[in-house]
Design a protein around this nucleic acid. Structure first.
Lengths: 249, 249
DNA sequence: GGAATAGTGTCTGTAAGACAATATAGA
DNA sequence: TCTATATTGTCTTACAGACACTATTCC
């Protein structure tokens, strides 16, 4: 390769040829979580084409270099394409890059995770996929063997979510508009896969000051329960202490 | 673009042509921290070439698709190239990808941060750089205006480090082999830019059970202080409670 | 003894854990 | 009334904050 020398930034850029350098493949994958049927669920799509044709995988794709301005745009675009909704919570989780994860060669993928309310979501397989579904996570496992290293990625995302739930109000993003404190606690319990103390939980949520009472009550069977909603313009609350008795590596 | 159809994964891979797809540029940048002269310090290199010729920047570079097996390998290779040592702590921090951060076009960079003992390190500018230096961080700022979006990246890495120091034993990785409890507390205080309560701090470290006493004492001026070392095969300790009174966004 | 730094004792405050007690519904 | 679920009361425990106190060195 011949190295030229330039006399200004501008001149360098005018002569810059991106094809002189080999680049790894770069993609974005999003672990889209929701909760229903007493389980944490993750959105999977069945691949329409090679590699891993017909295998189930996480929601992901390549950056649209023309139209995506940021990596997060790519994640949001794919998410909205599949679910038809905008996510109330999207967090970058990790980037995995190595020579072996994709049979086509060096590949880098940035992983996001999203939390969605299971409500009004109409799944659309869209192009590149022949099917799409929610898959429940039972004991940190799903039934399918996923494409690429998506099993490992899913495991990492679950770990991150579970750990973060110990000191944040993240599960609030999984709730419908109105919900009871018991509903919220149940979502915490589903994610953590353990029961929590009622009193401690309610004290914690009260202290966080993220909810507001509605005037409504909901009655399923016995004593009616107060309905709450998330306060407006509230961000994730970070508690100073973890919920205890859980894994902490 | 003509789409062919293949009848097996193998056939697809044999015919795969990576040059059909435009890819963003992909790099790795590492924020290398150490502590000396009563300040958190970050390693900077002065760029030898365009773009941002002669500007200071973080330690980074492109993936060597032949020899790097993982993104972390890239980070470690660059780090060892500049410092001559292996880092005791390397953590992936964040990936920034957008259309505007690099004048050459769509660019993705995965950012790591490393914690090094300021000891036996011989800086080497190496190729691509005309100079290399430690730069102190005063009030979350450094004096130079860095290349690309490295100012923003550095800010994010400092934020992450400071936040993590509130609930982990990370500063232990910045210590020399033997050190006093006061030394360790001072490093915490430098990173957090505030004083800590002596008693609370010592209780916390004792509880973490990550240090072992040596038989040696160190005497600077007045009463001699016990020297400790990090226990072997000890990982980062995660405390259940944060050090309080600090930022928590 | 006085100054400086290392290290301990101990009281207070906050929030979590445990679990008993009370409240409100339907049957 | 009995049962189930919602909600509150309250005692204990763990650990951080505050700060006084003791210990060991040099001068």
């Amino acid at each position: 390769m011949i190295e030229k020398s330039y006399s200004s930034e501008q001149e360098f850029l005018l002569n810059y040829n991106p094809n002189l350098y080999d680049r790894p493949s770069t993609s974005v994958d999003t672990v889209i979580f929701t909760v229903f049927d007493k389980a944490l669920q993750v959105l999977l799509v069945q691949r329409d084409d090679y590699p891993f044709k017909h295998k189930w995988s996480l929601v992901g794709g390549f950056i649209d270099l023309e139209n995506d301005l940021t990596l997060e745009d790519t994640a949001k675009r794919k998410l909205e394409e599949k679910t038809g909704v905008k996510t109330p919570y999207l967090e970058q989780c990790l980037t995995i890059g190595n020579k072996s994860r994709d049979p086509r060669g060096w590949s880098v993928t940035t992983i996001y995770f999203a939390l969605l309310t299971y409500e009004d979501i109409e799944l659309k397989a869209g192009k590149g996929a022949i099917d799409i579904k929610w898959s429940p996570i039972i004991k940190e496992r799903i039934t399918d063997k996923l494409a690429f290293d998506h099993d490992q990625i899913l495991k990492l995302a679950i770990e991150r979510l579970r750990n973060k739930v110990l000191y944040t109000s993240l599960p609030a993003y999984l709730m419908p508009e109105k919900f009871t404190l018991r509903d919220l606690q149940t979502v915490y319990e589903i994610i953590l896969d353990r029961t929590l103390e009622v009193k401690s939980f309610r004290r914690r949520i009260a202290k966080a000051d993220i909810l507001e009472e509605t005037s409504e009550m909901r009655q399923d069977a016995k004593r009616p329960a107060r309905l709450y909603r998330l306060k407006e313009n509230i961000h994730t609350h970070f508690f100073l202490r973890n919920i205890e008795g859980a894994v902490n590596n």
